[in-house]
Design a protein around this nucleic acid. Sequence first.
DNA 1: TTCCTGCGTG
DNA 2: CACGCGGGAA
Length: 290
Amino acid sequence: MVEDFESAQDGASGAWVAAFRDKVRTLGGALYRDLPWRCIDDPYGVLVSEVMLQQTQVKRVLGRWEAFMALFPTIDALAAADVSAVLSQWQGLGYNRRALALKRTAETCADRFAGRLPESYDELVRLPGIGPATAAGVRAFAFDQPGVYLETNVRTVFLYELFSDRDGVADKELVPLVQAACPQTDVRGWYYALLDYGAHLKATVGNHARRSATYARQSAFEGSRRQKRAEVVRIVLSEPGIELESLAAALDREEAGAGRSAVDRDVFESIVADLVREGFFRQVGDGFVA
DNA sequence: TTCCTGCGTG
DNA sequence: CACGCGGGAA
C-alpha cells in the first residue's frame, strides 16, 4: 500500500503525482471530517472558517463558527456590526487582530464588491487578514478553484511522503509540488483529503511539519506582553468608556489575581497605544471604547 | 511543554 | 527574514 515517493526530486517530471493523489485520496477520504463549514455554498462562511482556523485547532473553532455565523450571517451584517460586538464574539478564539481584519475585509467587500467575495487570488490576498494560504483556501473550498494551499497539515503530508529523509525543507521547494499535485477538478475534495490525512499523521506518526524551514516555536504566553494585551482588550469590552487610570488598575488586579506583579507603567501605556493604533479602541473623551 | 488549516510589519 | 500576536487542550 505504501509506495515510496522518493522521486520528489524529479517533481518536474510529475511521475509521483498519480500515486500520491491515489494515496491521499484513499487515506484522506477514509478519514473525512464532516465539519460544519465544509461543503457549504457560502464563500463568506468559508472565509470565516479559514480565518478562525489560522493557527487555531479545529476543536476550538467547532461551535464558535456556528455562533459567529448566527450573529453575523453575511458580509453586509459583519460590515455593519460594531467592532465591540465582533471582538466580544471572538473572545476565546485568540489572535484578536484576525477579528478586526475580518471585519475590515467585510467592509471592503460590502462597499466595493456588492457584499460578495472576489474569486481571484490577487484580489483575495489584497484583503486584510487574507494571506497566501487563506486566499488559496477560499478559492479551493468556496469556488473549487485550483491553487497552492500550503498550511501546516499540507506541509505535514508532503514532508512525510516526499521528504522523509530531509530537514529544513523550504516552502519554495514545496510550492511547485503542491501545485503539481493539485487536480483541476474537485479541488475542494482534494484539499479536504490532504488536511484530514495531515491531521491524522500528526496524531499518529508525529508532526513532520516541524521539518519545514518555516517552522518556528512560539514564545511563551504565560506572563507575556500579548497576554496583557488580551487582558486589556477584555477589560475595555466589559467596561466600555473606562478611563486610563481605571484600566491600569483593572489590569493590575487581573495580574495580581494570576499571581503576577503589577504591570510596568511604560509597558501598559505602550500596549494601550498599540491597541489604539491598530484600531481595537478609540478614545471617547477620557475613556476607551472598542 | 506542545502547537494549532498564518498574517502583517520592521 | 524574524518577530509579535491568544488561548486552550493534551
